[in-house]
Design a protein around this nucleic acid. Structure first.
Lengths: 132, 132
DNA sequence: CGCTAGAGTGAGAGTCATTCTCATTTAGAA
DNA sequence: TTCTAAATGAGAATGACTCTCACTCTAGCG
């Protein structure tokens, strides 16, 4: 999907809802939040908006272990990774030079090109550990 | 799913088909292969078998970018990562001390515990690059 | 400002991987 | 061999996501 040519309140609403949300959310959750807020936004539109934002790298997306796509407003520009609390969804953005280098090296060793990597860490944050 | 209490030819057929397959395959593909081979195995059974094998770590599983679960017979015991060819699915198993250390360090820095990590590399292997 | 083209929307149908249900089959102990 | 519950499998159910298409509303133009 390329840049939208028109601005709509729906797109803005999705962006706004995303900014207010601390951790990763699914499109479905976001849709529910927006409906609960009294809007009449459609699920398809939420998906379209998220796909657009994801493409312009305004949001990060990742797949949850159960196959759902999760989204999060992206503070750090450019390539980076995440450390996500399994319990509360709180997320830290990480830049990882070590990993990037390792990726390049391993790729070269095996004669692979166009290497992309999926690197995400899941754990339990301090606060949730205390609560448990 | 805990260890099965009975051995069935179906379970064995799934394992066998998996061993013969070089790269990652989806449950659906595996089911198709088994049906094509003349068996009457059910899709649900393939899923059950894969879940079981995955739990005993006899197979590795990962999520493809489009949300499908893929499986592969696991040669390297214990924790490891993968370098997968996007074109032909050929897979190299990697042990990555660097990454494990980085994971531990980052987790500690942020006060996270029980860190798990998803680290997979996708690229184009030498052979496929030549073919293209 | 009003008009218009067509981008954007939304309700609901469609798709597709995976899981569930439950009647039937069958492994494995006695 | 007989018996019983584990395992299977066909098809229905689920759930995330995408597609369709008639309708709406943005934004450029006069």
């Amino acid at each position: 999907m390329q840049q939208p040519r028109r601005n709509t309140w729906q797109r803005e609403a999705v962006r706004a809802a995303l900014v207010q949300t601390p951790g990763f959310v699914s499109a479905q959750q976001l849709h529910q939040v927006l409906r609960d807020a009294g809007t009449t936004i459609g699920l398809a539109t939420v998906y379209r908006a998220l796909a657009g934002l994801s493409e312009t790298e305004e949001v990060d997306s990742l797949q949850s272990p159960d196959g759902e796509n999760l989204f999060r407003f992206c503070a750090m520009p450019g390539h980076h990774h995440h450390l996500i609390c399994r319990a509360c969804g709180d997320t830290r953005e990480l830049s990882a030079t070590v990993v990037e280098e390792w990726t390049r090296r391993v790729g070269a060793e095996h004669g692979f090109s166009d290497i992309e990597h999926v690197v995400d860490l899941f754990g339990i944050c301090e606060r949730c550990r205390a609560t448990a």
